[in-house]
Structures are given as C-alpha cells and as structure tokens.
Amino acid sequence: MRPVIPYVTAALLFGLGVYGVLRRRNAVLVLMSVELMLNAVNLILITADTTVRAALPQTGQVFALFVIVIAAAEVGVGLAIVLQLYRLRATVAVDEVPLEKVDA
C-alpha cells in the first residue's frame, strides 16, 4: 500500500473544501464544504494510523471517530442556526447577513 495515494486524495479534498467555503454563498453549501474538509482530515488521520501503527496503536482511528462526533455536533448546531436564519431573513446567503446589530 502506498500511503501517498490517500494522502494526496485527502489534500485535494481539503483544497476543495476550502474552495467551497470561500466560493459558496448558500450557508448549507458552506456546511457541506466544511464536511469535505473534516473528511480530508479524517482520511489523513486514518492513513497516518497505518504508517505509525507500531508507535501509537489505533490512535489515528480513535481520533477519526472523535472528529466524526465533533462533525455531527457541528452540523446539528450549524443547521439549527441556518434554519433560524432562514426563518428570520428568508434567505440563507451568507453574504447577505448583516453583521451589525439588528432589532429582531
């Protein structure tokens, strides 16, 4: 097994995620791009796990599980915020959200 293949895959996925976060206006699509980045990190953790198994057995996989849990929490809160935003403003475009204080 050549670890460079999954590593490069992960790097490209991360790049795509960054691109998506910066490019997309729709908040849900931004969240999707964040998921891409998290998955890239997970992939790196899992691949690293196979290469350093002797020193730290299974640690990469444990960390990947932790990241998945964090991602689940992030999506839960993130979507709650997005839906609340949609309810208040009837839009989910992130650059239309006023940053100054607005009387709700």
Partner: peptide
C-alpha cells in the same frame, strides 16, 4: 446565485490543496 466571484477562492483553495499535496 450560489457562488461568489471565484478567483480568490480558487487561489486559496487551490493553493491549500495543491500545496498540501
């Protein structure tokens, strides 16, 4: 209306991805 102008994102994203790779 899903996208913002692309080139800064392309620059940063491509840079991050290809650089890491």
């Amino acid at each position: 209306d899903l996208d913002r102008p692309g080139w800064p994102a392309l620059l940063v994203g491509g840079g991050a991805g290809l650089g890491l790779a």
